[in-house]
Design a protein around this nucleic acid. Sequence first.
DNA 1: GATGAAATCCGAGTCAC
DNA 2: GTGACTCGGATTTCATC
Lengths: 154, 154
Amino acid sequence: MAGPLDRIDLKILRLLQNSGRLSNAELAETVGVSPATCHRRTQRLFDEGFIGEVRAMVAPRKVGKGALVMVGVVLDRSTPESFAAFERAIAKLKFVLDCHLVAGDFDYFPKIRVGDMEDFNRIHGDQLIALPGVRQTRTFFVMKEVVDNAPLDF
Amino acid sequence: MAGPLDRIDLKILRLLQNSGRLSNAELAETVGVSPATCHRRTQRLFDEGFIGEVRAMVAPRKVGKGALVMVGVVLDRSTPESFAAFERAIAKLKFVLDCHLVAGDFDYFPKIRVGDMEDFNRIHGDQLIALPGVRQTRTFFVMKEVVDNAPLDF
DNA sequence: GATGAAATCCGAGTCAC
DNA sequence: GTGACTCGGATTTCATC
């Protein structure tokens, strides 16, 4: 069942990545198979986890989340427990869009969306530096969003 | 026409953000209005740009893009022309998921997805340091994706 | 083992109110 | 905003290769 993807599966994946609300009928016609076949293949892409979820991209500025900030975080100690505690805590913060453990001068790199700089400063003082094990943070305010959340190229 | 969003509009937005393929009938029932009303409201959310596009989230590892890298970029000069040239060039690179102009020790912060470290090293040497005006780059390999592309909280 | 044709059922989209 | 109505698509079944 969990076979590799053929050219048609890849076409479906790419189409749904760019237009997640395409109907099965439209998909079927575009990729050149019958609606029944297309339906089965699309189902499989979901069932086997090739597609996680389908998400409407909400315009951040339209819902009062126009400010984007990246933060370099350094922890006190580099122990597994320290990392785990930090990760558990930051995963709960809803304004964190992205946060990865990296190799280099920082430990983590959260990307945060808030209403404005004032919001961020409050959150930084109240919640970020209070996260478990944080020794230091370095804030990078985003002045211009050049490429934001581009679709995956595959 | 471009009025503010009421509680029902927000509900629709949130539902579509988490399940972009919900049918209008399901949406309508969940938010508690008739299908006709729901259809009109949803249409408006698209027409007025509250929702940009709907995207199937493809699992990166399943399509051979398991490696994530963040790169701090410093340009030679801080002139508008220099920034513009860099932005035009990096926006064309398909493996760049994110790239923002920031305030702080770096100028730009591209986030890049590739197959593996070897891929990245090739790309770094061939394409990143060759971008117009790049003086220096600092690479942060992602060792663990803690939060990736979380939905917007609003 | 996968396909497409057909058949059923349900939702999309539009109307009048 | 709702209710009804029509049309077309979603989803299943089944014969076929």
